[in-house]
Structure formats: C-alpha cells, structure tokens
Design a protein around this nucleic acid. Sequence first.
RNA 1: GUGGGCGUAGCUCAGCUGGUAGAGCACCGGGUUGUGGUCCCGGGGGCCGCGGGUUCAAGUCCCGUCGCUCACCCCA
Length: 425
Amino acid sequence: MTEAKLSTFSAPKGTYDLIPPDSETFLAVREAIAAPLRRAGYGYVETPVFEDVNLFSRGVGESTDIVTKEMYTLTTKGGDDLALRPEGTASVLRAALQANLHRTGNVPVKLWYSGSYYRYERPQAGRYRQFSQVGAEAIGAEDPALDAELIVLAVDAYRSLGLRDFRLLLNSLGDRECRPLYRAALQDFLGGLDLDEDTRRRAEINPLRVLDDKREAVQKQLAGAPLMRDHLCEGCKAYHEQVRELLTAAGVAYTDDPRLVRGLDYYTRTTFEFVHDGLGSQSAVGGGGRYDGLSEMIGGPALPSVGWALGVDRTVLALRAEGVDVAVPARTQVFAVPLGEQAHRTLFGLVTEARRAGIAADLAFGGKGLKGAMKSADRSGARWAVVAGERDLADGVVQLKDLTTGDQTPVAVDALVTTLKEKLS
RNA sequence: GUGGGCGUAGCUCAGCUGGUAGAGCACCGGGUUGUGGUCCCGGGGGCCGCGGGUUCAAGUCCCGUCGCUCACCCCA
C-alpha cells in the first residue's frame, strides 16, 4: 500500500487531535464527571469560547499570569477586543448575570459546563494550549454545604471513573475582612527575604502567590511565613470548619494545605485542588473554590458563589497512569459481510433495520472481497457476522456467524433482526 | 521567556569509533474460486526533519534551522 503524504499541516503547537479509539475515553470521562452534577440539580450552560477581554482581566485578575501573558487576544474588524476564554468561571457568571438567572430562578443558580479553554503557554506533559475541562458553579448563596456539595460531587466523579490515587488539598483564603490584614503581614515577612526580581514583584502585587512557588530556594525561606490559617476572622474560621465537618461526614478525605493559593485572584474562603502524582510535573487534575466578590468585580450585584473545574485531559492522563480502563459504550455488535452486489443491497437493508431496532451494526463497504470483509468484521469488534451471498438469499437465509467460536448457522432473512435482539439481550 | 533530550518505514525503535538503510508490529497478496482471528509463504513501502559544512565517502561528525518532547515558570 503506497500512500502519498497528503498534508504537511499538523495540529498547532500545544494542541492535539482526539481520534478513535482514545477519543471515546475522553467522551466517557466528560460524561462521568457530568453525571453526578446532573443528579444534583446542576443545569447545562454553554457560553462563547471568546469574550470581551476585560471580562477576564477584571475577573481573573490583572496580576495573574493568565491575564498578563497567557491569553489569546484578538481585535475584531469592528474594533472589539476579545480573548479566547482561559477559564470558565467568569464567562458562566457573566452569562448568569446577563440572563438574570439569580432573579428569575432559585438561588443558588447551579450550572455545569464542558468545553475547551485556551492559554498561550509552553506545552509540556499535561499542559496544552487548548485544554478541556468540565466545570460547575453554584451562584448566589453562601452556605458551607454548597462548598462541600461541589467537592463531594467531584470526588464521586473521580471515583466513578475508577480513579484512586488522587488527593484533595483544602485551604481557606479568608474574606475581605481578614485577608487584607493577612496580606499585609505576609508582605512584611516577604520583604525580609532574599528573592529574585520576579518574585519580589509578585510579592508586591499578589503576595499570596509567592507561597505557591515550588522552587526549593524560595520554599526554604518560607518556612516561618505567616499563614492565612492563623489570621482568619471568626466568620471565615467557622465557615471553614463547617466545610471540613461536612466533608468528613460525607466520607471525603482531605489534606489541609495552608499554602494552597491558586493562580486566580477571585478566590475567597474555601479553595481546593485535586492533585495526582502520575502526570509529570503538572499535578493538579482539578480545582476550585469560593469567589464571593467576583460578581461585583464584573459589574454585578453581590453574589457569593463557589465552583470548580476538572481537567479532562489531565484526568485521562491520571487514569492512564493508574492503568484504569474507562468503560466505553458498546462498539459494533453485528457486522454484515455481503458477497456480490445483490447481497450488498439486501444486507444494507438489514443493517438499517437492525440499527433502527437499536443494534449497533455495520457493513463492509467499498466492494471488498469476502476475505477482506471478514477481516473488517473481525476488526470491528463485533461478536456476530452476518454473511450472505446469492446462494443464501435464494434460500431466503443469511449465515449468522459467532466470531468468538466460529460457529455458523443459517437464519431466515425475515427473522434476522429478532434473532439478533435475542442473542444480544 | 529560559534550559535539557529527541527527530530513521504507518507505529515502536536498532544502526558500534563515517563505507551504498534494518527489525518487530501494522499493511497488502497467496496457501483456502463463499469465511476473520491463529499458522505458513511472499510483497510493497524510507529526500534517515530541512539547509549548509568537513570528507574520496555522512543516517553517523560540525554549524544553523524547524518540529516534537520534558523541565523551570504557571496551572486544568
């Protein structure tokens, strides 16, 4: 078989194509993450992949890496400045505000979504320029049970996929009352350290994120750093304690991580991250938290909210690392092998009939010979082959062959679909 | 943005200190004029990423370039 090279194009840097059979796994993972959300009253929301660039710079935070260097931005012919969405929360909240869901429906407004996100970064294992996540947001209510609910739903999603070796890191970042005080204390501490210029600048703009630095030289100096944990106001302390109790009651194990900050500015109080060690250096498979101030930041009313996003690509990598095979829906169950043109027409009809009866059926196309068609039947994964030539059809039968045993018996054409339904039930 | 590793058949890779390009798997055909998977026999496939240099001679050495990849950074 000689094939000319048809294309010199390849997927853009940091992107990849989802093709069979792996693409089935991705679909299954998306569905598995969404299932618990649907059962918990979350409604599906879909927003544009691009938005006004200011939605993100104001929402996600001017100082974040996402906004300062990772956004794909463009100016339209009409002069609008847009950006491909680097995350989901800001868009979903914007959509909820625009549709007045918080007024017309019950609060919390519970929404889930699934889609692709874009960040201009150097690709590496588990980090892509287009990546896929499933997310959930509960908008307009301040209730520790809501934080706990979302975390439990994420854990249930992972478990339903068979993922085992993930850990849940939990922290509270305080609120507008206690965070500024802590921030000042931390800034004070960081001022006394020996830090490089970049880090020094970060300490000015968003000192909490310095805690997240994974470099040893930095971490060593952070040993005695003040922690948010010790600066929480009474309200935040009580709130966080309730979240923890609810998680424990639901049988969800977590690790307190007072250094967990996350890279988006809008988080308040509860923050969490699901980490997995099988992905290389990108350990987060999912994460989220509460964002009580975000609505106001983008021009809405006060709407305390909480949400998360789980990375589909990374979840797939984590599953692979654990050697978990995700159950994918049944492939072809029956494969039809025609001998000659007349049989091809007849089997085309029978395959159509079988499909309409709910059977996953396929047919050899392209005038393959019997041998080639049987090969296709084998590769299709079908349990049954339906073989028919003029001899059979003259007798009003087709040959039904069990591909696992090789046994073959004639079945009347009229009875084929009902026979198959019985065999497959 | 900064570093490291790697680009040889559709895929995974071998090719030692330069001497006319290989394996396994996959694919196609035959053994079986109407039967796949196993087995046996046969076959097609390669600008050795690209450009330049050294040399009688470069997949192999040198330089450049592009691509992939991993890591820093950051995060899903």
